[in-house]
Design a protein around this nucleic acid. Structure first.
Lengths: 215, 215
DNA sequence: TCGACTATCGAACAACGTTCTATAGAATAG
DNA sequence: CTATTCTATAGAACGTTGTTCGATAGTCGA
């Protein structure tokens, strides 16, 4: 069982969602496809289990960094660790959502975020909304980032820089009257850093939360 | 071509992602599967086009509601309309992300959001981060919401209320010391409203943005 | 009249998730 | 000790899917 999940994660890490097939997994484990079905009932369940498997590792890391003075700082730290984990494993983002709060480790992680918000002593409703917002933003931003780069970047034929530059050039060529924003932002986009972008958004959200907590 | 997209969207609306197969679509159009491949190169492209098709309708609506006094209010209005559109079409959320800014209508919608942020007269980098945050949060929250309810709720055997109550009961039964947040939030979750939850998170984010804009 | 282009169609292929049956060792009961 | 049930493995087979391919017209201009 443990080996099944480990190898499943390895496949996902190496080539993303599409690479995880029962046949490929069976070949890697040196068994038949039927054997895997003794451990999991379906591919969906396999993905759920694999996701929760790596969330378990993430959870262990996170639990060591949630004991700061400031609740919102801790919230920020945990969210950043979640983002890093998804950035390192792009396939994780897509399944973090549907891997609902039925999986044990995911639920624990969710609760850990909630514990920080509880320290702010908001109303229950406010707490619930705050946690949902942080989770939603983190997973959403990370999943957005995790969309498979369209092949050209995977085989190394063009680097990330040139790929972004391609977009920037397209956008610069647009009519500034029709696309004022995109036109103006092209340069910024060409040299943007995903993690910094995420941090900036998260800080906006947390600033709003801090403001609410002060009241 | 128009008919292909219209019928594709109809299939997606009726039964979600899985229902859109080339054979089902061909049957509906009264043609063969090969014909569809004359219009689109792959299923991915079909989904991209279908997504952008409905984004076009959304865009038309949005363009009429982006002329308010306050830039952040307009930003809020547009984000809410995007959320509603995805809530009405759960399949949309998942493809909003990968439907990157190559599609014409999506790019226009993105720019429209950006135009509101430009009115805040932040630095280019701040503007870029703000727009990314709003888009990331909106799509993330909506996609999270759009995860297929696990069958029981689709056939009407159990309503949404009972489904949520199931979770709430599970959470209430957990050890309050081990899961302090989840335990405490169970009631809130059982009666939560998705749209309100989204609005609350969005307002936190926009509060942070407003604070940044004032400085 | 002859090609080129537009458009349609369905058979065929490969890959996939899933089901089913066969099998054999381990554990347990009588 | 034996019979039976349980645990676990293995792969053939099925149905569905995306995709490719060649055949086949209709349409237009030269």
């Amino acid at each position: 069982m443990e080996a099944v999940l480990t190898e499943a994660v390895a496949l996902l890490d190496e080539a993303g969602d599409g690479a995880l097939t029962f046949r490929a997994l069976a070949a890697r484990l040196g068994t038949g496809v039927g054997s895997i079905y003794w451990y999991v009932a379906s591919r969906d369940q396999l993905l759920d289990r694999a996701t929760d498997h790596v969330v378990g590792q993430l959870l262990a890391d996170v639990q060591e960094h949630s004991d700061g003075d400031d609740a919102i700082d801790d919230l920020r730290t945990i969210a950043l660790m979640m983002f890093d984990a998804i950035a390192a494993r792009p396939w994780l983002g897509a399944y973090f959502m549907r891997n609902s709060l039925l999986q044990p480790n995911t639920l624990r992680l969710y609760d850990l975020l909630g514990q920080q918000v509880l320290r702010l002593e908001l109303t229950p409703r406010q707490s619930f909304h705050a946690v949902s917002a942080v989770v939603g933003f983190t997973v959403g931003a990370a999943a957005d980032l995790g969309q498979e780069p369209p092949q050209e970047i995977l085989d190394g034929s063009v680097g990330r820089e040139e790929y972004l530059a391609l977009f920037a050039d397209m956008w610069r060529a647009l009519d500034p009257d029709e696309y004022p924003y995109v036109h103006q932002i092209a340069d910024e986009f060409a040299h943007h850093d995903d993690a910094e972008q995420f941090r900036a958004g998260l800080d906006l959200l947390l600033a709003g939360l801090r403001q609410q907590a002060r009241r």
